[in-house]
Design a protein around this nucleic acid. Sequence first.
DNA 1: GAGTTTGAAACT
DNA 2: CAGTTTCAAACTC
Length: 687
Amino acid sequence: MDVVSPELTSLLPDEIMDTEAIEDIPQSQPDGSAVQSQPSDDAPVPMETDTPVASEHLTMAASIRLTAPFTISAANHQIILNKVASSQATEAAKSAGISPQIIKQEGQKLLVTTIGKSGQPIVLQLPHTGGKPGLSQTFGDNKSQAPQFKVVTIGGRSELKPVVGGAGNQLTTLQAQQLKTVQIATKTPVSSAAPIKFIITKTVNSKGLCPQTSVSPVIAGRVLTQTSAGLPSRTITLSEPHNSNMQSISGKKIAISPLKTPSKVNPSVTMGGVGGSQFKTIIPLASQPNVQQIQVPGSRFHYVRLVTATTASSSGHLSGPSTSSIQTAKPMVVSTGAVRMSVPIVPAQTIKQMAPKPLTSATVVTTTPTQQRLIMPATPLPQIQPNFTNLPPGTVLAPAPGGGNVGYAVVPAQYVTQLQQTPFVTLASSSGFPASAGIQTQARLPLNGLSTSETTSRPRKPCNCTKSQCLKLYCDCFANGEFCNNCNCNNCFNNLEHETERLKAIKTCLDRNPEAFKPKIGKGKEGESDRRHSKGCNCKRSGCLKNYCECYEAKIMCSSICKCIGCKNFEESPERKTLMHLADAAEVRVLQQTAAKTKLSSQISDLLMRTTPVISSGGGRLPYTFVTKEVLEATCECLMEQAKKAEQAHQPQVEAERMILEEFGHCLMRIISSAGKAKADCASINC
DNA sequence: GAGTTTGAAACT
DNA sequence: CAGTTTCAAACTC
């Protein structure tokens, strides 16, 4: 799927996962008026997703107060922003550490903010809707014809001065929770000493949800130039989109679902991590999912429910295939904290089904253990403020039933699973406005040192917890951020029915160890092996050659950080080599035996198929009773024995097959001989 | 399947 | 931080 416009693509880095470079983002204001990342976000996380490639980041920051949909459509390379109701984004932008710039165009305001380094702003300009889609406009060109819309910008850091700041264009007030920020980390082709970040910040007016009212055309613009401070210009194209499906904000849910890995993944739920965030996600322009605003109690952030409309909206029609709604939920990845989080885009119908709570984990969340995901409580828990930067993988936020914007959302793990199944993840973000708006992001998501294929094909074993209520890290399900499903546990609280307890347990774990839900097996340092245990093992008696050892279990060797005694799990360890050889030999044997069995069974079945009609016909043929189950089993045993002999003699496969076939021939001869003899006997008796 | 061993997690 | 206890998985019989 073409999710990024050519223009934008040119601005994006090959790798957008460089977290270190992103740390340069100005921290959010202490007053919390703007988006603020979690404190723990500052710490780099040894995620497998880290890539050393990206050195530059482009941050697009768009602080916009929207009363209408805001959409970025990848398919047709559109960024759609609805009419700006007020100009309060400036302060929000300022509070976010960026200097907003506003371009006023016929009553519309374009807030341009600069974030990043080198003062290289990227301007998103809106061509006027009147049929000049290709109209380019420079940063300072506040006389743009674009009527309805405003966008946002991009580019350098906050030290950049506003290019345009018309009187009355200053956004005055912005509620902290009305600001949404989506950051796009990208590598710019333009040489820049420092990383540039692309942040799209938008404000959300929770009261401005007028489902059917905002049909006004969205302005499509094309940013052709970047004219700040003589820096190289950059262009982003904004085309004229249609309003997408309308969604009521009620019942909105946000699915924040970090990658689920066989090991542990640390999700970060901060949507607007302006400060100290590490970006690993790029936001491509993609289809338009509906996004609904969600406010987490006590949180300064607004969360959104990403819903893919399943039916066409009554307001406006989307033109072009790119704006068509997605029928299949897609995960959304929001990278704001130290780690990326994925937010599945779930069809509204699906969300409806799983909404409020009385749903069981089996019916709502997953159908298979591998699809289990941790789900955050659907009820507001003011006393509990989850550390979103360390939530277990698969964490999903759902709104409280009837709780308005408060609460969390629940998303079926099947959608999260999609995240694992595809190297690209789509992120959609928007406000809960009548018309849908969305930003979609893609990112490559290696999981915990394992490829996606590795992570998807490994079902988890059911737990057998009895005393921990599955709310401690003893429980593998809980530790992996999953609900218990098809487990053998007793008194299990790791389910939807015990959301409160579960969230408390999560918080407790995080209090005790903020890294509790982060992957234990992560990348080693430069030059070291690809994977290693983050803490190292502490084995004393197992020699680190049994599954008691977490290193051995993860099929990695112990490292210098291990505190094990009598470790034999190192490269040159003869014990380890022996074990590996034995394991390999056993595996080979199993494979060979399986193959031989299959082949022989097939042959015998073939034989039976051919003999049966003959038998039934009688007339001097071999009696059917001679090919009995016992005879077959005996034959198979003979053949297996032959196979073993060949194996023990280290015969090549060809020779083994020859021996087996030879034995099979002998067996057949014996059967025929016996049958003939019996027939003769029978004939003599009858006579 | 029951009992033992093991080491991580939890607790003090 | 170290020592102890608890716990569930891994392992053995």
